[in-house]
């Protein structure tokens, strides 16, 4: 498969503090990349680069061969750990938001037939993440898991080239987290997504991803620890056999049929 996103010799520096150094990375279409590493190793920085929220100090990021603008756009969807949904809109309108922004630049709202068509699309997406019956519920009335489902639906309705997840399940109960793992795996397969996920949970990283990327510092200067940045120290591609073994070790089966 060809590389959809390429990072070429990326450096990120804040003043004299180097966060990332010499990051070279190709992310293939339809892959699921987990990014793990100790705190402060630049996991979230890397995700912000991919998102376009920040520009690298040096180096180049290419999306489909074109340099990425340092601004967020609808070709890259995102789900954060919290605050990714709009509290003033119910579930349906949260999902509708992305469709309305593209179609109505001035009013930000759709009317008549166009609105009905967009609402149908939004409802279908809500159903796909298991919120089919919760269209009129506001985020404040939802559990953490439901809010994350909504955030995923909201991002996917724009059909982004890549979906970026920043510790999306970190704040959820273990049981709910399992449900969310099944959901994201199913969506990834069904909708042919490309996903990059930052996580603290190594088990989660291996269970979900086709590729696990570990960020850490290769070099360490005890007198000036901030002068060396992190880079990808392990880059493991997981094939089906390895994944099956990991599954066996975890002895948790992913139920493909009854995954809400």
């Amino acid at each position: 498969m060809t590389a959809m996103i390429s990072l070429r010799n990326i450096w990120v520096e804040y003043g004299d503090k180097i966060v990332l150094e010499r990051v070279n990375l190709d992310i293939a279409e339809r892959s699921f990349v987990s990014i793990v590493g100790p705190s402060g190793a630049g996991k979230s920085t890397l995700l912000r680069l991919l998102l376009g929220q920040e520009a690298p100090s040096r180096g180049q990021i290419l999306l489909d061969g074109v340099p990425l603008k340092p601004e967020c756009g609808p070709d890259r969807g995102v789900v954060f750990q919290r605050y990714s949904v709009f509290p003033h809109l119910d579930a349906r309108h949260n999902v509708l938001f992305g469709l309305e922004c593209a179609a109505a630049p001035l009013t930000g709202r759709l009317f008549g037939a166009a609105r009905r068509a967009a609402l149908e699309e939004a409802d279908a997406m809500l159903a796909a993440v298991g919120l089919g019956d919760n269209g009129h519920v506001f985020p404040a009335q939802m559990s953490g898991g439901m809010q994350q489902r909504l955030a995923i639906a909201q991002a996917l309705v724009k059909r982004p080239r890549i979906l970026l997840l920043d510790e999306p399940f970190g704040a959820l109960d273990p049981g709910i987290r399992g449900d969310m793992h099944r959901l994201i795996t199913r969506l990834w397969r069904e909708q042919a997504l490309t996903i990059a996920m930052v996580t603290h949970d190594i088990e989660e990283a291996f269970a979900l991803a086709t590729r696990v990327l570990t960020l850490d510092k290769r070099r360490h200067d005890p007198h000036a620890p901030h002068r060396f940045g992190a880079t990808a120290v392990y880059d493991l591609v997981l094939d089906r056999r390895v994944k099956a073994e990991i599954e066996a070790i975890r002895s948790i089966t992913i139920d493909e049929n009854d995954n809400n």
């Binding site: 995102v78 938001f97 992305g98 922004c101 930000g108 909201q154 991002a155 724009k158």
Partner: peptide
């Protein structure tokens, strides 16, 4: 996060003001 999210959903500065900030 909300502002970033809205931008990844295609919102312009105007739409951010009108649809995200104003109602809240």
């Amino acid at each position: 996060e909300q502002m970033i999210k809205a931008q990844t959903l295609g919102a312009s500065s105007w739409q951010l003001a009108l649809r995200v900030a104003l109602p809240q």
